[in-house]
């Protein structure tokens, strides 16, 4: 998809692919044939540059044809470089300017509470994104309003554009920060599907807002992308994409000595 587009953000899409998969295909109640179903759970992609993983999940859920994915970022395609709620079916908010999604989520959660709606909001953020001061204004508000219908997930892949998050501007310890603001925080391995699913489900039952700090690997599943800042926002070539897809499928890559890495949990 990103190869066809010629630009885009594979690294952070892959680090959150397991989390997004768990949400769309296990945790969330949603109706692809009725995107505005009032009782649905909502997925908010605050780190809008990871649109590819959202679009893939939406397409595979049936919100729009999978073949649309190949027109990502092309002129006149509804799949914009960053999500647009007025263009793409199933996209809950427009995002791309980092740091705003949790604030929007707080507003949505309050509106849903006023209307007595049962849905849970799952908001996915980046660890680099958490450097925005607005994130912490929203965290404060989430606790203040005791938003039990709000679950924030931080894709803690340790990288941002200019390098490792700890080198650019350290955001850790994230769980302690959320707790200090009055949230229930839980650190998980964001590639351990059983744990991810369990904690996402559990977050619904907690009184007050929950933050899940998911330790992940940026570029997860593609050997040459893993933990590389350079793959934040770069499109793979056709050859690289072929290798990436084979590795992600767990197939042996022809001509390479090392067999593709399996989904070794904790990787």
């Amino acid at each position: 998809m990103v190869t066809e587009a010629g630009s885009g953000h594979p690294g952070g899409s892959l680090s959150s692919a397991d989390i997004v998969t768990a949400l769309f295909f296990h945790t969330m109640n949603h109706r692809p044939d009725e995107p505005k179903w009032p009782d649905r759970d909502r997925f908010i992609l605050s780190k809008g540059h990871c649109a590819p993983v959202l679009y893939a999940a939406l397409a595979r859920s049936g919100y729009f044809p999978v073949c649309d994915l190949l027109n990502l970022r092309k002129i006149d395609c509804h799949l914009q470089g960053h999500p647009d709620m007025n263009k793409t079916r199933g996209v809950e908010i427009s995002s791309g300017s980092l740091g705003q999604g949790l604030s929007v989520s707080v507003g949505m959660a309050l509106a849903m509470r006023l209307d007595g709606l049962p849905g849970q909001i799952f908001t996915l953020m980046g660890d680099g994104e958490s450097q925005e001061g607005e994130v912490w204004e929203a965290v404060m508000a989430g606790a203040h309003y005791k938003l039990s219908n709000l679950t924030a997930i931080v894709d803690a892949n340790g990288l941002q554009i200019d390098g490792f998050t700890r080198d650019v501007m350290n955001v850790e310890p994230l769980p302690a920060k959320f707790e200090a603001f009055g949230w229930t925080a839980k650190a998980i391995d964001g590639h351990d599907m059983a744990q991810t699913v369990e904690v996402l489900d559990w977050s619904r039952s907690v009184d007050g807002p929950v933050a899940i700090i998911a330790k992940t690997v940026k570029g997860k599943g593609v050997s040459f992308m893993e933990n590389q800042a350079g793959w934040h926002g770069k499109a793979p070539t056709v050859k690289e994409a072929e290798q990436a897809i084979m590795e992600l499928r767990g197939e042996a890559v022809p001509g390479s000595e090392t067999p593709a890495e399996g989904e070794t949990v904790g990787g």
Binding site: Q131, I161, D162, V168, M169
Partner: peptide, 28 residues
């Protein structure tokens, strides 16, 4: 967090002690 794109990265490399990458925090 956009030193590579804005090209301030060249200055960062030459003068690390006078370069400040604040992270994704434009207001700050």
């Amino acid at each position: 967090d956009l030193a590579g794109s804005t090209k301030s990265g060249q200055f960062a490399k030459a003068f690390p002690e006078r370069f400040f990458n604040v992270g994704v925090a434009e207001a700050n």
